[in-house]
Amino acid sequence: MSKAFVRDDGDEQEDDDPTPALPAGGKNYVTPAGYARLQAELNHLVRVERPQVVNVVSWAAGNGDRSENGDYIYGKKRLREIDRRLRFLTKRIEQAVVVDPARQENTDQVFFGATVTVLDGDTEFTYSIVGIDEADPGRGRISWVSPLARALLKARTGDSVRVATPGGVRELEILAVEYLSLD
């Protein structure tokens, strides 16, 4: 059988990245702070982490037998992981459309970058609508492609929106829409 049809354990898998893919034909909207974080991670990998791992692999390769050399084997694996992340970050940065919430003109309506306070039953929740790479539900930052954000988009203060959730359909009342600088 040809080597082309056999998966080697050293082969890379592009779909191992936990970050969701962009919607087909969609743009990679990102806040200025999110863009800066992507750039900082890329720079750290290129200038600090990758050169350190290359040095370790180079040193380990000089020690002779590579088949049982843990430093060499782990180093090569780590280099593949770093290179995959570098390709991912480079693509995301190239596709990025930076949207500054502070420059939003239509501040009474929910768009990308809005911080929305909603009433769900008797409980208030605050969500910021951010880019896919910035989403952190534990901090109230939801991706603009999430079902909740899609339901909130274009709504105004006082509107009620319906959101389909795994627990059933929820009705949320929008209490406030703000455009803050997200750090």
Rank of each mutant, 00 (worst) to 15 (best):
R78F: 12
R66T: 13
A149E: 03
V163W: 02
E41C: 07
L172M: 07
L79I: 10
T126H: 10
V110A: 06
D17G: 11
G25R: 12
L42Q: 09
V110S: 00
D16F: 11
L182Q: 09
A24P: 11
D9T: 06
K77C: 10
D71T: 02
L79W: 09
S146M: 08
A135V: 03
L175V: 15
R87F: 10
A61N: 04
G75R: 02
P32G: 04
K154F: 12
V56F: 00
Y179T: 03
Y29F: 13
D183I: 02
F125A: 12
L172I: 09
R66D: 11
E94F: 01
V177N: 05
S2L: 14
L86I: 15
G131W: 00
L119S: 10
E171C: 04
N28Y: 05
V97K: 12
V54A: 02
G70Q: 02
L180N: 14
Q95T: 02
H44A: 11
A61H: 06
A61W: 03
Y179V: 05
G34L: 04
P32T: 10
A33Y: 06
V46C: 03
K27E: 12
G25P: 08
T107H: 06
V110G: 01
D183C: 01
R103L: 13
R162W: 03
T115K: 06
D65G: 05
L153H: 11
S67D: 11
T157D: 07
P147V: 08
L45D: 00
P23T: 10
R66L: 14
R156P: 00
L148C: 07
L182V: 11
V99M: 04
V163A: 07
D8F: 14
V57T: 04
L38E: 01
D100R: 09
D11G: 09
D71E: 11
